[in-house]
Amino acid sequence: TSSPISALNTALVRVVKNSNTLGIAIEGGANTRQPLPRIVTIQKGGSAHNCGQLKVGQVILEVNGISLRGQEHEEAARIIAEAFKTKEKDHIDFLVAELG
């Protein structure tokens, strides 16, 4: 099937882990009204906020190259949490899309 996402503005955003928290809240996931996780909050002082490029309303397509398409909420959240926790990398690469 063709992807409507591919027609949207996407951006690759690198978030350096320069704080103890990532500091985003996400909603949605497969089998919900919001099929891809959407950023609903960015907390001041978190790594995401410090990065300055993530915005509320963006949907997250990939995390370190892992597609979130078809992942339910809990699994998508786990993938993001693992990406932040791992010491193998000092950053997380998010592929995000601007909607509307």
Binding site: T21, I24, A25, N31, T32, V40, H73, E74, A77, I80
Partner: peptide, 15 residues
């Protein structure tokens, strides 16, 4: 058979 009309609401997780 009942057809589900609405999807479940999204959860929100703070990361």
């Amino acid at each position: 058979r009942e057809k589900r009309l609405t999807l479940p609401p999204s959860e929100i997780t703070l990361l």
